[in-house]
Design a binder for these strands. Structure first.
Length: 450
RNA sequence: GUGGCUGUAGCUCAGUUGGUUAGAGCGCUGGAUUGUGGUUCCAGAAGUCGGGGGUUCGAGUCCCCUCUGCCACCCCA
């Protein structure tokens, strides 16, 4: 094939390849999320990437509709790629609830697609790690949602992160009192930008987009401007929503939630009440969560969620309230990359076996197999190249230990164990049967803090 | 979707007011007495200068379009 007719290898905007160095931390993150979710009793599920368009359309608000990848399939059906995992969950719950029963605690780690403009940490194909509890209105489920987020970020090695929370009822209650309840969406949209654009711009937008008066805008901003400890904020919130049942129950719910989270042992300051967060998704009705990395707030929320009263109402008569959150895996990875939290290794196997003597392949295979049987990741170099080149390869790939054995070692019944970080080597007994001494020597090197 | 910036070997970048066969560092491949890497030395492969069109005797260098990346808006993970 001539050079001119060759197809340029490329990927679509917002879609990416994952090389080993990127995929290894990615998989590690996924397995950490999985472990934490499971530790709370959430069970795995999966759903199709493609759904009937009617299932997806109009569920996340106007904006998500525009971002929806949709097309006609070969059978003339209108279909769409899921843009989150919550809407598929609603369909899933409506379809299978009779079989599964409540409460349903499920986690779902999968790819979603949104046809929007790309930015750092923002792609058209990305992965979400959702966990939700369906079929209960209990505050216990809200509390566990916060606890899962807390445990998850702790397990990932984050020291400084803040779970910000709010309750839709607080804002709605205030809006009811101000007679703005029918314009909640534009008002909340404006309010959501408070941290970014400041109070003056927010007031202007409320007046322009929602037709609020100066007094109304001022009142809303006063609510959002409340500062202090969680308890102080709660105390100031009460009079502001006085007279609104919705507002009162929202404040009460937040108080309950905060004291429970504290009782569960979460450090003060980790969970912060923030009445200005509204969250764009229309289906939230109660508690809302957002998680920010203290070191990198600009990248936005890396784990968000909240409570929804009846997500599945479009698909079933049965009432299915729920609460949950979604970890933005790719955004979080972009943040961790920027914070230098991604270990640079291109191999998942710490042990490297050199193919040193071309007549000894069987012995190397036996050696590698014996170590793998003991739970070690072992890579055998495929070609009997010069030892120097093999070691160079092992070093560049990030292997920690190299095993070298030639005629001398085999005759002596040993294997040379080399610590690739320090260069130190030692001969360890190996006659083809007992891997114990080798496992111990390798374990010492791997356990050492490098 | 709208606006701004950007695009030269795998990566980071040079490339003079448009002028002969486009360079460097790193990386990669191989070598420097046939058993030891991360330091050194030598050699090599690798770019239709993101793609297309135009202006010009002549364009990596100017103009238009398009694609990509980044930033802002919007929205959000």
């Amino acid at each position: 094939m001539s050079k001119t007719q060759r197809i340029t290898p490329r990927t679509l905007k917002g879609f990416r390849d994952y090389l080993p160095a990127a995929m290894i931390p990615r998989e590690r993150l996924i397995s950490t999320a999985r472990r934490v979710y499971r530790s709370y009793g959430f069970s795995p599920v999966d759903t199709p990437a493609l759904e009937y368009l009617e299932i997806l359309a109009g569920k996340g608000g106007e904006e998500t509709d525009k971002q929806l990848y949709k097309f006609e399939d070969h059978g003339g059906r209108w279909v769409g790629l899921r843009f989150d995992l919550t809407v598929p969950l609603a369909r899933f719950a409506a379809q299978h609830m009779a079989e599964l029963g409540t409460p349903l605690k499920r986690y779902h780690i999968a790819t979603v697609w949104r046809g929007e403009n790309t930015q750092r940490g923002r792609y058209r194909e990305f992965m979400q790690c959702d966990f939700d509890t369906i079929g209960t209105r209990s505050v216990a489920a809200d509390v566990e949602t916060a606890l899962v987020i807390h445990d998850l970020f702790g397990a990932l090695g984050f020291e400084a992160f803040t779970i910000r929370l709010n309750h839709r009822g607080v804002l709605t209650g205030l809006l009811e009192r101000l007679d703005l309840a029918d314009r909640a969406v534009p008002v909340l949209r404006a309010l959501d930008k408070l941290a970014k654009v400041g109070p003056v711009a927010v007031a202007d937008e409320m007046k322009a987009a929602a037709g609020a008066t100066d007094a109304q805008a001022e009142e809303i901003l006063r609510l959002a401007a409340i500062e202090g400890t969680n308890d102080e904020i709660l105390a100031q919130l009460e009079p502001l929503v006085a007279g609104s049942p919705l507002g009162n129950s929202g404040v009460a719910r937040l108080a309950e939630l905060l004291s429970a989270v504290r009782a569960a042992g979460v450090a003060a300051g980790r969970v912060k009440l923030d009445v200005s967060i509204a969250r764009g998704l229309d289906y939230y009705t109660g508690t809302v969560f957002e998680t920010l990395l203290d070191a990198l707030p600009a990248i936005g929320s890396v784990c968000s969620g909240g409570r929804y009263d009846n997500l599945a109402e479009l698909y079933t008569n049965q009432e299915l309230p729920g609460v949950g959150a979604s970890l933005g895996l790719d955004r979080l990875l972009a943040a961790m990359e920027e914070l230098g939290m991604i270990e640079k290794t291109a191999t998942p196997a710490p042990v490297f076996v050199a193919f040193f003597d071309k007549n000894r392949l069987h012995d190397y295979l036996r050696l590698a197999a014996a170590l793998r049987a003991r739970g070690l990741g072992v890579e055998l170099y495929p070609d009997p190249k010069k030892l120097g080149q093999q070691l160079k390869y092992a070093d560049r790939r990030g292997h920690r230990v190299a095993l070298i054995a030639g005629e001398n070692e085999f005759t002596a019944g040993t294997v040379q164990v080399k610590d690739l970080a320090t260069g130190k080597m030692q001969d360890v007994a190996w006659t083809g049967t007992d891997a114990g001494p080798l496992v111990e020597a390798i374990g010492r090197i791997l356990g050492r803090i490098s």
